[in-house]
Amino acid sequence: MRHLLSVLLENEAGALSRVVGLFAQRDFNIETLTVAPTEDETLSRLTLVTIGDDRKIEQITKHLNRLIEVVKVIDLTDNVHIERELMLVKVRAETDSRAEVKRTCDIFRGQIVDVTPNTYTIQLVGPTEKLLAFIEAIGSTKIMEVVRSGVSGISRGTKVLSV
């Protein structure tokens, strides 16, 4: 099962390496990882996607909580939540395919954020499936480069993860 874990941790040197190290040491895997400070700059918010059965996820959560710098951990996939990922894609867009690329981009509500005579750089935001669907729609022959941010997530409703 795929799980989206959200972690509040002290925004200190070395804290991130402890989280990442934990996954390597205990043979847990990380599919995606994003991290940045929150509105309170002493705290970072880290979101990661990992895969495992309930027992493994329980172990991962417990071990994350055991790290001194980890303030809180929640599994967003336990409840209704919103997931978003940002992707930048540089695609070949030459005369004959230029219009078609633009059209596909519009269908996916992407934005063209950079243009050259033979390329477009497209920015796309959405859940992971949408980004993958876009890549498939564009076709691998046109894609020059893909950069993805990894998944960020937040609970729906009034529920929050804070100190």
């Binding site: 027992r55 329980e58 172990q59 417990k62 071990h63 909580n65 055991r66």
Partner: peptide, 8 residues
């Protein structure tokens, strides 16, 4: 005292 030791 360590929750990670329980049901490991």
């Amino acid at each position: 005292v360590d929750p990670a030791s329980i049901s490991k």
